[in-house]
């Protein structure tokens, strides 16, 4: 990894630099997959969305230099996560493809069996509650809470005002607090 900014890497990628593309992919892939997974509720869909988003990065990178259009005007991260969120919302609106994926991720084998089971159950219940949120509330919560983007960055990505993003966050957390009220009581009992 180098200290090059995303924008510097994009200029190199626009000249066909595969090394720069690899660095940009490794820098943003985990976050892109996590955002897509929270929006779609499916790890498999999330990985396909990340693949589609980075393919667009590669094919459209030459336009990064042209200073024209949405691609150049936006910061790279804003552009990338806007693509990921929009692809995720489109995917989420399609009929469900696999019931198996709804079972969630396998437990971490490093944990004890009981602890791993509790952790997986808790994770699954939180994920299920997040999945029931309206898509824009879910996207705002994902970007600001889970991925640590600023309110303003999330507003740019979702094409909303910062105030509207804040309202979405308030409603999302209020809904989750109600949905997870029982879980929260259990969680607080077992947490140190």
């Amino acid at each position: 990894m180098t200290d090059a900014t995303d924008e510097d890497l994009m200029i190199r990628i626009g000249n066909g630099d595969r090394v720069a593309f690899g660095e940009l992919v490794r820098r943003h892939l985990s976050r892109a997959v996590a955002v897509a997974q929270r929006v779609t509720g499916s790890r498999g869909d999330a990985e396909e969305i990340a693949q589609e988003a980075f393919l667009r990065v590669w094919t459209k990178a030459p336009h990064w230099r042209s200073a024209e259009g949405e691609f150049r005007a936006a910061r790279f991260t804003t552009w990338l996560y806007r693509v990921v969120v929009n692809l995720g919302i489109d995917r989420k609106r399609r009929p469900a493809m696999s019931a198996l994926e709804a079972a969630g991720d396998p437990a971490d084998p490093a944990d004890s069996a009981l602890r791993a089971l509790e952790k997986a159950q808790l994770s699954g219940r939180v994920a299920a509650a997040v999945a029931t949120l309206p898509e824009r509330q879910r996207a705002a919560l994902t970007l600001c809470f889970y991925e640590g983007l600023s309110n303003r960055e999330a507003a740019d990505i979702l094409a909303l005002s910062p105030g509207a993003v804040e309202s979405l966050l308030v409603r999302a957390r209020r809904t989750l607090r109600e949905a997870l009220a029982g879980v929260a009581a259990e969680f607080l009992e077992v947490s140190p």
């Binding site: 593309f21 990340a50 693949q51 336009h63």
Partner: peptide
């Protein structure tokens, strides 16, 4: 996954600026 994305993407031509 990163390696697969890099390989598949860079196998495609870039749009001309």
């Amino acid at each position: 996954l990163a390696a697969a994305i890099i390989a598949r993407s860079t196998a495609r031509p870039q749009e001309r600026s």
